[in-house]
Design a protein around this nucleic acid. Structure first.
Lengths: 227, 227
DNA sequence: ACAAAAGTGTTTCGGCTACACCCATGC
DNA sequence: GCATGGGTGTAGCCGAAACACTTTTGT
């Protein structure tokens, strides 16, 4: 890959990660304070440079590993941001990704060491450059994804109760969802396996645990050709 | 923008356009034969390089103008393709866009001069590199878009009959759609205005022309929070 | 008259919504 | 026994799908 037949202007290529987590019934966002100019000290998404020998996805995985100590993180490409003026420090094209993180599994000390901090999603601070827009679009994509796929395994432990799943979905969509209808809908998908033990920490009656069954990759709802 | 505070590897950045058109009741794709190595002579998407002072969107618009003579073309970003080995000629990161073109309005001579050719969508030749994958994903995105927004104005003349619109949607979705249900659905959106004249070229009875009314930008169907 | 496409009406079905209601348990 | 959250049942509504039917007009 060191030889190249094309002669054209080259660009700095970065990745920026919108890192979602879930804790205490709230959707969270992992942000960092810039350690270099411009905008030193301001809050921003976590990002990094794309090397010559890796894909943008691999660069994002590398960034996420450095920050959280986790591998095999769920990643989705959001879109490219390429306004020449988006970064006052120079012409940087950025590929935005959103990531889903199991907060209970990641390396909290490492996060702290990196100067990063988890923010409640709807209370996060203003971000630098076009990062606010990135977050907005990523959240929209996450909601869309979650309405078709159960992305539980990427945000909460593999054993969970229906009320816990319900709370997760309310956090993702930032709105109330009828608990009874939610339960019926999610059970009708036949992707959950009921376990014999109950979680008794959150109510007197206790709620049965479930886990994803084999066909967990099944799409929740095929987009039909309506038109 | 000539000064830059960052010191990191730089990348060649390209755009590739999946150009959709519609003619003779068929979805079409505009393709070109490569005029340079590698893969000289093979069919490929139309693409170009991103300059230092423009966005990827602007680069795509530039490419589309050079090929079709049209400005203000409907464009949607598909995604970034950044496999270091995707192009044997060197490490090129590509941003894919799909475009919707009014075939009746574009400059056919210019297209021919550029060595480009319209192919029926489901009969197009094998493409170079990862362009087949780009087309597949773009088509999926187009179908998704068309199920929420009436993208008629970007593919057919502004005056059209319901049967013509129906045929367009059958071409986009590559499947049959019940004509009666389609008519009722599209009229129920209240975005079409009935005109007084009929098109008599396609049937004995003739079909009334319609055009988009003021609120043409209205989304066909809000994605509800189902979950 | 009839073929062919435009356009309308009707019935069925399934899923979503909004509730009311029962269940199990700790206090 | 009662408050609390877990879990179930049900009636109504709406939109999609399937398909029968009417309308218009050229030949």
């Amino acid at each position: 890959m060191n030889t190249c037949v094309y002669k054209h202007p080259k660009h700095l290529l970065a990745v920026d990660c919108i890192i979602f987590g879930y804790e205490n019934n709230k959707l969270k966002l992992l942000l960092a304070q810039r350690k270099f100019a411009p905008e030193l000290g301001k809050w921003s998404l976590l990002g990094g440079w794309v090397d010559e020998t890796e894909t943008a996805e691999e660069a994002a995985e590398r960034v996420l590993f450095q920050i959280t100590g986790l591998k095999d993180i769920y990643l989705e490409q959001v879109q490219v941001f390429s306004n020449p003026l988006r970064d006052p420090g120079g012409r940087v094209v950025s590929v935005a990704f959103y990531a889903l993180i199991r907060i209970d599994k990641h390396d909290k000390a490492l996060v702290r060491k990196n100067g990063a901090k988890w923010w409640t999603f709807n209370k996060h601070p203003e971000l630098i450059f076009d990062h606010n827009e990135m977050v907005k679009i990523a959240h929209k994509k996450l909601k869309n994804k979650a309405s078709y796929k159960l992305c539980a395994q990427n945000l909460i432990p593999s054993k969970f109760t229906i009320p816990q799943l319900h709370a997760l979905y309310e956090a993702i969509f930032q709105c109330e969802i009828d608990p009874g209808n939610f339960r019926k809908k999610v059970l009708s998908l036949n992707i959950l396996e009921k376990l014999n033990d109950k979680n008794r920490t959150e109510s007197k009656k206790g709620a049965y645990y479930y886990q994803l069954n084999k066909q967990q990759e099944r799409v929740i709802k095929e987009r039909k050709v309506k038109f």
